[in-house]
């Protein structure tokens, strides 16, 4: 099997197009940092509601009731899924705003 670099230069991005979306390196960095910050926060919530509330602390939470549900059980079979959906739409909103700020929404 051949391990040599394969031709990638001309297949992906054509340069004239890149110029029209030119971003200076500081802005690039800032944009990426903000994105990573959003990712960190949202994934923290993602971890908390599923692995945290639904698995690791399920027994503790089960002593709290939410109507007919034990809270830990509810997170594992319902709550975590609702939060997942909300998380994605929050990310969509945040990123659409961020893209607008850096004029990356074409």
């Amino acid at each position: 099997m051949n391990l040599d670099p394969i031709n990638i230069g001309n297949t992906i991005f054509n340069t004239s197009n890149q110029e029209s979306h030119y971003m200076n390196p500081t802005d690039r960095k800032k944009y990426w940092r903000t994105n990573l910050k959003y990712l960190g926060l949202l994934l923290l919530v993602w971890f908390l509601v599923s692995y945290g509330f639904g698995i690791l602390w399920v027994d503790e939470l089960n002593s709290i009731r939410l109507g007919g549900f034990k809270l830990g059980f509810w997170f594992a079979q319902q709550g975590a899924i609702y939060v997942f959906v909300i998380l994605i739409f929050v990310y969509v909103r945040l990123m659409n705003k961020l893209d607008k700020k850096y004029k990356l929404d074409d």
Binding site: I12, Q18, D99, D105, D106
Partner: peptide
Amino acid sequence: PPEAVQEIVENIRIPSGVGAASEH
């Protein structure tokens, strides 16, 4: 990784300019 590949990574992190990128 070679320069050109690092350039790819820089590029996929920026959302704009996707139209042209898919024409190949």
